[in-house]
Nucleic acid binder design. Structure first.
Lengths: 173, 173
DNA sequence: GCTAAATCTCTTAGAGACTAAGATATATAT
DNA sequence: ATATATATCTTAGTCTCTAAGAGATTTAGC
């Protein structure tokens, strides 16, 4: 087997392995939402709030791809559950900032403990240097996914007849 | 900084980086479903079919966590869109196998091209040996997530009075 | 072989979450 | 001042989900 063929095979395996674990990650999230008794979108917003901190309702709509009307519902439910708080911006009174209530949101965080423990166990088998490689990949992969999402959304705004013909690259291997 | 402290920091960074890219991956999937004009669950089932091949309706329900009734709806919509075909098992006529229709499903596959291209670009910067490390991690990570999902589902079946108070609201499932 | 229980999918009714359109309130520009 | 833009919320209607159970088929016990 030639060097490039071996690499192509490796890339194919990697793609499938990542697709698999990513799909399983989605299922984990669904289970968390189910156990917590909140909708998937609601949990997704909690996640965004965890990652981005205090954000406006409009920003949540932008990031999740939901309409502002749907976000109103999401925030209503989360607020009712005591997980977040609406905070009107005093400088621009049209804006509503959504902030997590840490004491309550902690209960959701606990549902990620099984995942953290499982991953800790996996990480144990790697040296510091290997972990640094994984971290580099995670960061670069994140940027790649963001770029891919932007590209795909771009397709949405392109009229179908003007879209470049999407052809799968010839699978090597 | 001590060796173990450095490692703990590394692990923390890794967790956040993976959480970020995983969240972004979910958003990519939502965008795909949106562009394809099908529901999220429908796309999720297409993904499972891609990974597992021909599976029964019941298996889809099991893997997705949806009820069998919901799966009937999913398959109805996918079949109507020409993406899958129902195939009754001649040996056990209660069973219905769901099989993708490759010619049509290809159109969905094309929506993953931006992602494949982005990841290919990322992978380019890694040596074969580094890619093998990433593959090992992806496979072990997958098993970890499966284990975590099982553990979390286990909590679901634990009587509420025997586990820490996690439930915020009565579940609908 | 016959009957009861189990298995697998589908049906139905009702609940929840989403979109589209537009209302409301506030801010900015001319 | 007035018009336009921005940010969130409201409403009506649609879609997808669950819960419960029906229908069809298979398996197990006698």
């Amino acid at each position: 087997m030639s060097r490039t063929k071996a690499r192509a095979a490796l890339l194919g395996e990697l793609e499938e392995a990542m697709r698999r674990s990513s799909a399983q990650g989605v299922l984990y999230g669904q289970t968390v939402a189910n156990v917590a008794g909140i909708a998937n979108s609601d949990l997704e917003c909690m996640d965004i709030l965890y990652l981005e901190g205090r954000v406006t309702a409009g920003r949540l709509a932008e990031v999740t791809g939901l309409t502002t009307g749907a976000i109103t519902g999401v925030v209503d439910r989360l607020e009712k559950a005591g997980l977040v708080r609406r905070e009107r911006d005093e400088a621009d009174r049209r804006k509503v900032y959504i902030a997590v209530v840490p004491e309550t949101a902690m209960k959701i965080g606990q549902l990620y403990v099984p995942m953290q423990q499982a991953m800790e166990k996996v990480f144990d088998a790697y040296s510091d240097e290997e972990l640094r490689l994984l971290l580099r990949f995670a960061n670069e992969g994140y940027k790649g996914v963001v770029a891919a999402t932007t590209a795909l959304k771009g397709l949405l705004d392109t009229p179908p007849e003007k879209r470049p013909d999407l052809k799968l690259k010839k699978r090597r291997g």
